[in-house]
Design a protein around this nucleic acid. Structure first.
Length: 358
DNA sequence: CAAACGTGGCT
DNA sequence: TAGCCAAGTTT
């Protein structure tokens, strides 16, 4: 395989001077000296970074390493603890697969991550991108790493007019062609850093780009036009109701959602069935038990593929026996629960001080 | 293969 | 502000 090329040499030179320093990385100097990043750290960060910003990931990454310093610790953790720690980061299937993957590595691979793309991709929650990224970054394998940043850089450099996602194979071939055998991990991270800091979706800083003399989009087109994407569909609106029952002792009624689908395995207050492609009712008829439910406004939450409007109701009520895995939780302990953001919003709508430290 | 799957920040 | 976007994977 070709060792290097104009693009890899140029980009790695830029990366040596302009790389971002991130908690899960080692420096280019250390990498060139033969050190390797911790595969557990690289894997954990890559999963968290799927469709998620660096800024959002940083505190979660620190929290996870603090709670579970090694992959065996994560494998041994109760899944409820993992879901609670992930709460707020979104795409909760990632957390469920994270746990499964940790168990597989700990129990079937002796606590050692596979060091090949194929071996990594066989694990839960690791797809094309993550397998290549971990192989390249943690094991210095010559893997072609392509994420949204790389798609943007490549599509602009070579003015790829075909729309995504159909053009992925073509772009992946380009990335494979450019990825050097020397420092493939740094090359991958450099492509992503370039996309994140210079070759940005809007108003790219072409004047600062190491490729500005070779970029076809800059030379003869509009860089912002790339990558070309299929048009988006409009978001439907769904409605439903959420019910916040509070006891005189300050406990509220919670339950756990089923393991699959939207917010799978996460905790919620009782709601109408708004998930199942149908609108749930918005009236207190659908409450978990009868009572003088007080309307306390509406919350709006935007998911990836629909907008949800939930009517929120509150009821002060003596604690009653629960059924089917529901339970009463002290309001003072809500922070420790696996509550997704939409549920925190609903609770705050009913109990404005629920999450304040008073 | 198209659709499902969260959230917060930025323009 | 309404929409776009972020280190994608699974079904």
């Amino acid at each position: 395989m070709k060792t290097s090329n104009y693009y890899s040499v140029t980009l790695l030179h830029w990366y040596d001077r302009h790389h971002r320093e991130l908690p899960w990385r080692i420096t280019p100097v250390a990498a060139k000296a033969g050190f390797f990043a911790n595969p557990y750290h690289v894997w954990l960060s890559e999963v968290m970074l799927q469709q998620t910003t660096v800024q959002a990931v940083k505190p979660y990454f620190a929290k996870f390493l603090s709670l579970w310093p090694k992959v065996e610790d994560l494998a041994a953790a109760p899944s409820g603890d993992v879901m609670a720690a992930w709460a707020g980061l979104g795409y909760y299937a990632r957390a469920r697969n994270l746990k499964k993957c940790a168990e597989a590595v700990a129990n079937e691979h002796g606590g050692i991550f596979p060091d090949t793309e194929a071996g990594l991709k066989a694990l839960p929650g690791i797809g094309d991108y993550t397998a290549a990224a971990v192989a390249a970054i943690a094991f210095n394998r010559q893997a072609a790493v392509m994420d949204g940043n790389v798609e943007r850089v490549i599509s602009r450099l070579f003015t790829i007019d075909a729309p995504l996602p159909g053009s992925k194979p073509q772009m992946k071939a380009k990335v494979a062609e450019l990825t050097p055998s020397d420092r493939p991990g740094d090359f991958a991270q450099a492509m992503m850093d370039l996309g994140a800091t210079i070759c940005t979706p809007k108003r790219p800083a072409c004047a600062l780009c190491p490729f500005n003399s070779h970029c076809l989009a800059l030379a003869k087109d509009d860089p912002e036009r790339f990558p070309v994407k299929a048009p988006k569909k409009t978001k439907p609106v769904r409605v439903g109701a959420a019910f916040v029952a509070v006891t005189p002792d300050g406990e509220i009624l919670l339950r756990r959602r089923i393991e699959t689908g939207l917010l799978g395995g996460m905790t919620e207050v009782p709601t109408t069935a708004w998930t199942a492609r149908i609108d749930g009712g918005t009236t207190p008829d659908h409450a978990p038990f009868p009572g003088d439910w007080q309307a306390c406004g509406q919350i709006v939450h935007v998911f990836t593929h629909f907008e949800l409007r939930l009517a929120v109701y509150r009821l002060s009520h003596e604690k009653i026996d629960t059924e089917g895995g529901d339970w009463w939780e002290p309001v003072t302990n809500l922070e420790a629960q696996a509550l997704p953001t939409v549920m925190k919003k609903a609770i705050v709508q009913a109990i404005p001080l629920a999450f304040s430290k008073l």
